[in-house]
């Protein structure tokens, strides 16, 4: 089992008020799955993704990633896990400004200790894969939203992680661009990457093989999608 979440709970204290963002959430994800996590805004989706992405540790409950208990790891060990095992795609793209697509994609490899020559080769390869082979040296401000998200996907692939975690990857995009992004995810899934995608759009979630729905921090649905939506053919 790739991911085993058991009774994950996360609460935020600020002063006297305590917000429970996530409560008793348990589920498993196997290698190679394409899972959508759904829920309305404020339901705890991002909180869950931070936990799954080893960006944060739960207040209680356990999270085993590849059988390893994440809550026992130090900050630097978590950084290493994020670098090697997880590729992030954020709603706001989160690319380094005034920096070329190539350099953005190379960043995780810098932290992962990939030698310099290899970094350029790999980054070029991944940018080609997402259809940006002719935009290698464009900086963030010279790219459209859909292109920025594709750079972000290439960056998520940089260390060839087993898991790709995407938090509303199409949330800031027009639907045509959103479909293109989904097509890339499906291709990556077909190549063996586990995809965990957060979304509140049923249309986007329909691409996944399994849908986990949460509401007010609690898991309400965990079901297989019998007929994942096919890639639109134009």
């Amino acid at each position: 089992m790739l991911i085993q979440a058991t009774r994950l709970t996360k609460s935020y204290k600020s002063g006297l008020t305590e917000t429970v963002a996530l409560e008793d959430v348990s589920f498993d994800i196997k290698t190679g799955e394409f899972v959508a996590i759904m829920g309305p805004s404020g339901s705890g989706k991002s909180t869950l993704m931070h936990m799954l992405g080893a960006l944060d540790t739960p207040t209680s409950g356990t999270y085993l990633l590849d059988g390893e208990d994440i809550s026992t790891l130090s900050d630097d060990e978590l950084a290493e896990i994020r670098n090697k095992k997880i590729g992030f795609v954020f709603q706001a793209f989160n690319l380094l400004p005034r920096t070329s697509a190539l350099k953005n994609v190379m960043l995780p490899m810098v932290y992962g200790g990939v030698p310099k020559e290899k970094r350029t080769d790999l980054a070029t390869k991944y940018l080609r894969m997402v259809g940006l082979g002719d935009r290698l040296l464009h900086t963030t401000s010279q790219l459209s939203g859909g292109q920025m998200q594709r750079v972000a996907i290439a960056r998520a692939l940089a260390m060839n992680p087993s898991i790709i975690l995407a938090d509303e990857p199409t949330g800031n995009l027009a639907s045509v661009q959103g479909e293109e992004i989904m097509a890339i995810f499906k291709k990556l899934n077909a190549e063996g990457h586990t995809i965990i995608m957060i979304t509140h759009e049923p249309d986007i979630a329909a691409h996944a093989e399994r849908i986990i729905a949460i509401r007010d921090g609690r898991l309400i649905t965990n079901r297989n999608n019998k007929s994942p939506k096919e890639r639109k053919k134009h």
């Binding site: 960006l55 290493e80 960043l107 995780p108």
Partner: peptide, 16 residues
């Protein structure tokens, strides 16, 4: 702050 957070998310360690 955002840039630092991103770098850490992508695997930058404290020392880095």
């Amino acid at each position: 702050t955002r840039e630092i957070g991103l770098r850490k998310a992508l695997g930058a360690k404290k020392k880095t």
